[in-house]
Design a protein around this nucleic acid. Structure first.
Lengths: 222, 222, 222, 222
DNA sequence: TATGAATGAGTGTTCATTCAT
DNA sequence: TATGAATGAACACTCATTCAT
C-alpha cells in the first residue's frame, strides 16, 4: 500500500481537498473527495456504496480506483484533510494572542467556523469516528489526539492563570461535545452564524469553568 | 403489519426490554434485543448484518424473523424502549422537587446515570439517529421531541426564576451535546461514575448559564 | 405418504371440495382447498406461499399441515377434484342422447359451464399443468387423458356418422384450446354466459369440422 | 432506469434477441436472453431462479446484473422482443394481399410458424402473461393489444366482405386459443409442421366462421 | 487515463417444512 | 386438533473490488 502510485501522489495529504492542488490528478481527486463527502454525509460510510460515490462524482466505478485504492482510503483522506486543516488553522490563529481567555474564544470560534463552513465533512469526521481500522485509523486518531492536546493546553493555561480547579479533561471533552453535537440540530435561520453561536457557547463555557458563588451546593442531587 | 403475532404481542412496547416482561415470547424478544444492542454498538446499524445479530443471540437467521419483521423494526424497538425509559424515569424524578436548579441537576444526573448504565443502547440511540425512516422514524423523533420539550421547560423555569437572558434552545442543545458525546471518551477509571460526572458537568453548565462579571467582553474575538 | 392419516382420510378424493363431505375434517379441508384455489388463481402455484394460503384460510401455518402433507399435495387435490368432477358431470350428461352433434354441443356446454362456474379452479388446472411431478402428476395426467379420450370418442362418432375427414386429434385439441383460453379474456358483461358462449364456439367448431365448399383452396397460402 | 448502461444500450429493443445485434454487449445480452428463454420455458418465471439463469448462460450471478437490472426486466425483454417480432412479421406478410380469406390464412400461418419456430419463447409469452407489473407490463400489454387489433381488423374485413354475422371478438379470441394452446400438446412427429397445422386450423376456423346449413339448430342443447 | 465487464462474497428476507406441546 | 417456535436452504439483489483494454 505504502508505495503504490496513488499513494505516493498523495504524499501531501492536507492539500487533497484544497484549491492549491497542482496536478490534474490532484484536482480530479479533490473533486471526487468533495462529492464523496456529500454522499458520506447523507448515507453514512457503511450506507454509501462505491456506486453511489461514482455516480455522485460522475466518474466510472472502475475509474474511482485510479484515485483511491479502497473505499476506506477515501474516508481516510477526507478525515485526514479535514482534521489537519482545522488543526493548522487553529495553530495559526492561536499565535495571535497570549491571553488565555481569548485563546479559548479563538478555539471555539475556529471550531465552529470550520464546522459550519464544512458541516458535511465535520459530520463525516465525527460520525464515522471508529470505522477506520489499523494504519488509517491510527493516523487519524493521532491527528485527533494532537488537536485534543492543543485544546487541553489552552485550557490548562487558562486554569493556571486564573487558579481554577476544574478538570481540564472533562471541560475540554464537554466543550467538544457541545460543539460537535451541533450537526444534529443546527439551523442557520434560527441559530445564526458561527460568530453568534461561538459567542453563546463561549459564554456558557467560560463562565462554566470559572468559580462563582452562583452555584448553590444545596441544589445538588443525590 | 397490523395483526402479525410479533406486532400484536408488543402492544406494550416499553416493556420490551424490561425485566417485567411476562410471556416467554417477550422474554426471548428482550434477550435478542439485548444482544442486538451489543452488535449495533460495535458495528453500527448498517455495519451489523442480520447474520451477526443472529449469531450473537444464538438464534437461527430465519428464527429472528419470528420476533422482528425487519432489521429496521429491531432498531426501532431498541430506540423506542431506550427513549421512553429515560423519559419516564426523568418524569418520575422531576416530581420530587420544584426547585429550578435542583431540577436541572436531576435532569443531568438522570441522563448520565442512564447513559452510563446503558451506554451501548445510548450510543445506538444517538449515533443511529437518522436511519429510521417513515413511521418508525416519526415515532422515535416524537419521543425525542418530547424529551427535548421537557428539558427546555426545566431550563425555562430556571431562566425565569433567575431572570436570566440566555437562549434556552442553545443551552439545552449544548447540554445534550456535552452529555451525549461522552460515549466517545468516557473511561470509568479516569472519569468516575455518573454522580461525579454529572456534578462536574452540572457545575459547568449551571455557572455557564448564569450571569457573571467573570466573562470579560474584551477577550472576545472577531 | 401412502398410508399417512391425512391421506387415508382423503381416500374419496372427488368429494374433497364437494358439499357432500361428511366429517368435520373433510369440511375443514374443503374450505381450505377453496381458499387455496383463490390464492393459486391470483399468484400462481410457485408465487403463492404457504403463508399466503394459511392467511387466506384463517388457519395457522402449521395447522395446514394437518390437512395436507405438502403444498404440492394441495395442488394435486385441487386438480384431481376439478378434473374428476368435470369428467363425472360430462359422463352423466352424455348419457342423455346418442345424437353425435348434440353430444359435441353437450361437451362444449359442459366444459364452458363448469369453466365459468369454477373459473379460478379451471385456471389453476390449466395454468399449473406441469408443476405436479411423479405420482401426483401421473394421476392428474391420467385423469386428463381420460377426459381427452372421452372427447376424442365423441368427435370420432360425429366424424363417422357424417363421413368427415378431419383429424380428430387436431380438432379436439383445438377445441380445448378455444375453451381453455377463455380465462385470459372472458368478461361476463361483454361475452355473456356459458350458454351463449358455448353456442358461439359450438357453431364455429361444428361448422369448422364439417365439409363445405366455402373454403376456397385458392386462398391458401404457401 | 433512465441512464443505466444496460438501458441506454437497449434503445433499439427489437434487436435484442436478433442476429442483427451489433455490439459485443448486445451479442452477449442476446445469448443470455436465449438461455433464459429455455429456463423460463422449463421452470416458469417464478420457478426459475437467477441462479438457474446464470448457470444456464455460463455467467456469474452478479455478472447477469451487468446486462439486466432485474429478473423482471429480463422477462420483459424476452416478451417485448417476441411480441414485436411476430407483429412486425405479420405486418410484412399481410401487405402481400388484399384477399380477406388469404389474409386470415396468412395470420394463422404466421402465428403458427413463429410459434413452432420459437416454441419456448411463445410459451413464455403466453404462459407468463400476468407476471409483469406496472411499466413493463403496460408496454407488453400494449403490444398485445396491437396484435389483437390487427387480427380483429383482418377478421372484420372478412366478415364485411362475406356479409357474415359472427362476433369478431369471440372468433379472434377463439382462434388465439386454438393456436396458443398448442404448446401443451404439439408433437412434430404426430402433428406435422406449421404449414400442415395451419391448414387444418385454418380450415376449421374459416369454415367455422362462415354460414352454412350444416349446423342443425335442433342439435343444440340447453 | 479511464472504463466496461465480470466476480465471490455477502445483503436482508422468505421459503416449505418440522416438532414439541 | 391445532399452533408457536424454529430452521436450513434458497431467494433476488448489491457489495467492494479486479482486470483487460
Amino acid at each position: 500500500m505504502a508505495a503504490s502510485p496513488a499513494t505516493s501522489r498523495l504524499a501531501a495529504p492536507r492539500y487533497a481537498l484544497a484549491s492549491s492542488a497542482k496536478s490534474r490528478f490532484d484536482r480530479r481527486l479533490a473533486k471526487i473527495l468533495a462529492h464523496a463527502v456529500n454522499v458520506f454525509y447523507e448515507k453514512g460510510y457503511e450506507g454509501a456504496s462505491m456506486r453511489d460515490l461514482s455516480r455522485a462524482s460522475g466518474m466510472s466505478l472502475a475509474g474511482m480506483y485510479h484515485y483511491f485504492e479502497s473505499k476506506e482510503k477515501l474516508l481516510y483522506l477526507i478525515q485526514r484533510h479535514t482534521f489537519s486543516t482545522i488543526v493548522e488553522q487553529l495553530r495559526g490563529k492561536l499565535d495571535s494572542t497570549d491571553d488565555p481567555e481569548a485563546r479559548i474564544r479563538i478555539l471555539i470560534l475556529n471550531h465552529l467556523e470550520y464546522f459550519l463552513a464544512n458541516q458535511k465533512a465535520m459530520k463525516v469526521l465525527s460520525h464515522e469516528d471508529e470505522v477506520l481500522k489499523n494504519g488509517f485509523g491510527a493516523e487519524v486518531r493521532s491527528l485527533k489526539r494532537e488537536y485534543y492536546r492543543i485544546c487541553l493546553d489552552v485550557l490548562d493555561d487558562f486554569k493556571r492563570a486564573n487558579r481554577l480547579g476544574f478538570s481540564s479533561r472533562v471541560a475540554v471533552l464537554s466543550l467538544f461535545g457541545m460543539m460537535n453535537w451541533i450537526y444534529t440540530w443546527y439551523n442557520p435561520r434560527v441559530d445564526g452564524d458561527a460568530a453568534k453561536l461561538s459567542e453563546q457557547m463561549g459564554d456558557i463555557f467560560l463562565r462554566g469553568i470559572q468559580d462563582g458563588k452562583s452555584v448553590r451546593k444545596s441544589a445538588r442531587v443525590n
